[in-house]
Design a protein around this nucleic acid. Structure first.
Length: 260
DNA sequence: ATGCCGCGGCGCCCGCGA
C-alpha cells in the first residue's frame, strides 16, 4: 500500500499538478493540507475520476485538510479532539480495512506558530499536545496508524540547509522540537529518517529569495508510523521534482510503501 | 532588513504562510 502526504497550498490552484502527480505515483491513500477552500468548492470530480473516495474538512481562505483513498472509508473524524473551541480545519482522520487488518490515517496541518510572542505560538504547542494525546490513545488501543502531514517542525539541524536561519522561528524553537521528541518517544517512527539516515532531505522551499534555486530547503512534512506500520515499511520517497513544475506548491509530496 | 513570493477575498491591499 502506498500512502502520501502533500501540502498543496490551495488545491484549486494545484489541481492539474495533483492529477499529474497522482498519475505518476498512484498513491492508494493521499493526505492533503492547505486546501484553502470549503467542501463546496473542492475539485471533487477531478479527483473522483481517478478512482478515489474523498473525505475533507474545509475552511474558507485558510487551512483545510483532505484524505483521498482508493479503499472504502469506514469512519471519519473531522477536527483534532481535545479543544471544542478550535475552529481551524487542521485535522482529519479515517479508518480503512485491508485483508491484513485495519489502518487509521490522519492528515495533519499543524499550526505555523509565527510570530513568536503572539498567541499563535501557544496555539501551535496546544495543537501538538492534543496530537500527542491522540497518538497515545491509538497506541493504548493497539491501533495501526499513520499520522501524515505538514507538522511545521524542523526536527533537527540536518533538516535544514541553513539551520541558523531558523533559530528565531517557531518551526525550529526548542519547545516545538521537544513536542516532536515527545511524539517520537511514544514509539512512533519518522519514515523518511528511518530509511535515509542523517541525509539532508527537504520537503519545503520558500517562494522567496530564490530558496529553490539555492536548495535552501527544510524538512517539515512527515509521515509518523505506529510500531506495526514501521515494521512493514518497504520504501520512502520525496517527490522533489514536483517543486520544479510551473507554478508549484512550496511543499512537495512525500510518500511511503508499506506491506499492508 | 520583516521584504523577497504566492494565495484568497464583500479584492485593487491586506492577512497569512514558513
Amino acid at each position: 500500500m502506498r500512502i502520501a502526504t502533500w501540502n498543496v497550498n490551495s488545491v484549486r490552484q494545484r489541481v492539474d499538478h495533483l492529477v499529474a502527480w497522482i498519475k505518476e505515483t498512484s498513491p492508494d491513500i493521499c493526505c492533503l493540507q492547505e486546501l484553502k477552500c470549503t467542501e463546496e468548492t473542492f475539485p471533487r470530480l477531478e479527483i473522483e475520476a481517478l478512482g478515489y473516495n474523498i473525505e475533507l474538512l474545509g475552511q474558507k481562505t485558510f487551512n483545510g485538510v483532505a484524505i483521498l483513498s482508493k479503499y472504502r472509508i469506514d469512519d471519519v473524524i473531522r477536527g483534532l479532539p481535545g479543544d471544542e473551541s478550535d475552529e481551524q480545519a487542521r485535522f482529519i482522520e479515517i479508518g480503512i480495512s485491508t485483508e491484513k487488518g485495519a489502518l487509521r490515517v490522519a492528515s495533519i496541518y499543524a499550526p505555523n506558530g509565527n510570530p513568536l510572542g503572539t498567541e499563535k505560538f501557544p496555539y501551535k504547542i496546544g495543537f501538538l499536545n492534543r496530537l500527542i494525546e491522540r497518538a497515545r490513545e491509538h497506541l493504548a488501543n493497539e491501533e495501526v496508524f499513520i499520522f501524515a502531514g505538514d507538522y511545521n517542525i524542523i526536527p533537527m539541524p540536518e533538516d535544514a540547509e541553513n539551520p541558523a536561519q531558523w533559530v528565531n522561528d517557531a518551526l525550529f524553537q526548542p519547545e516545538s522540537r521537544a513536542k516532536w521528541r515527545e511524539l517520537m518517544s511514544l514509539g512512533l517512527t519518522d519514515a523518511i529518517r528511518a530509511s535515509n539516515g542523517n541525509k539532508q532531505l527537504y520537503t519545503f522551499w520558500d517562494y522567496q529569495a530564490g530558496a529553490w534555486q539555492k536548495n535552501n530547503g527544510i524538512r517539515i512534512d512527515h509521515l509518523l508510523l505506529s510500531p506495526l506500520c514501521a515494521d512493514r515499511l518497504t520504501g520512502t520517497w520525496i517527490d522533489k521534482h514536483v517543486r520544479g513544475w510551473e507554478k508549484p506548491s512550496d511543499h512537495v509530496p512525500v510518500r511511503i510503501d508499506i506491506n499492508l
